[in-house]
């Protein structure tokens, strides 16, 4: 696929940071507001797919290689499983950070409250790893399919 017109590219350029910030907000605030790793990852991958269709797939593969995307996805998966294994002293998936005074270790007051980002123990870290995995995985699918489609059309 070739580049689209200058109008589409300009609008995509100015829209891309807002989509990225919204998706990263959904990932990072997954334990306070609706959303989480999968939802925010899907939003960020949608923004990357917007850049992919506005510019060409060759332009995208000059910036990010598909092996990098595979590595990022594997880092997310390994991070998720090792975070689950860290609590193996009690059970698998034990949330050992809650109540300690370490990172994300506070407990919010019961009932409706203004959210505090520094709560919920392992959940934000798991949200981050799942979000990384979903971003890399979904964008790798779209980018590889677009690249193969453009290459097949050039051969004809």
């Amino acid at each position: 696929m070739s580049e689209m017109s200058k109008i589409v590219r300009t609008i995509s350029n100015s829209l891309f940071p807002f989509i990225m910030i919204y998706g990263l907000y959904v990932i990072m605030h997954g334990h306070l507001t609706p959303g989480g790793g999968f939802q925010g990852g899907a939003v960020v991958a949608s923004g990357c797919a917007l850049m992919l269709v506005a510019y060409s797939s060759g332009w995208v593969f000059k910036k990010v290689k598909e092996s990098d995307l595979s590595v990022l996805e594997s880092i997310g998966a390994i991070g998720f499983i090792s975070l689950a294994f860290l609590g193996i002293g009690v059970t698998f998936f034990y949330n050992f950070l809650v109540g300690s005074n370490l990172l994300f270790g506070e407990i919010p007051p019961a009932g409706p409250n203004t959210g505090n980002l520094n709560t919920a123990g392992l959940l934000p870290l798991m949200n981050l790893s799942v979000g990384l995995k979903v971003i890399a995985g979904l964008f790798a699918i779209v980018a590889v399919m677009a690249f193969v489609a453009s290459r097949g059309m050039r051969k004809k």
């Binding site: 989480g36 939802q39 939003v43 779209v142 677009a146």
Partner: peptide
Amino acid sequence: DVAIAEAGVGACLTTAILIISIK
């Protein structure tokens, strides 16, 4: 939660994948 996931995956990524396949 499901609404955000459906809007991201169903309305954007599936459309992109299907349009690329049609192309």
